[in-house]
Design a protein around this nucleic acid. Sequence first.
DNA 1: CGACTTTGACCGGCGC
DNA 2: GCGCCGGTCAAAGTCG
Length: 136
Amino acid sequence: MIQKSILKKHASPKRPREITTNISTVCVKTTSSDQTSVVKDGYHWRKYGQKVTRDNPSPRAYYKCSFAPTFPVKKKVQRSAKDPSVLVATYEGEHNHPHPSQAEIKVPLVNQARFSRTNDVFLDQNPSFAAAVAAT
DNA sequence: CGACTTTGACCGGCGC
DNA sequence: GCGCCGGTCAAAGTCG
């Protein structure tokens, strides 16, 4: 695979530094029994990578929208360092594409917080993620 | 058959 | 200048 060394990725070395899209950090409470590989939040996500960071001893998973790969929407899931039973999902971009199956929305969302640069305050609400997105 | 998942390796950017 | 980290991609295998 010589090409792998040359072609590799980054076809566009000059990627316009688009301002980070809307970043939404959602705290999802899950149990050891619900450690499914894919978090069903109403969309289809494809895991394209997993890496362990120093911030968290737990492995962080990277997901990409598999239903609309053309959309610049990405998702990062990482376990909470304090609460291993809590999953922190970071959504990058907006979900402007149609839902594959709205009836599939049945996620145990416990706390939904919006990433605030000043201070990360976790709201004590449990609205459907789709509802928050659809409301956009 | 098709789709999805998993793992490893590589690169770029930043800091000191 | 060098080292380190984070992030992404590719390929292969498996399952329904």
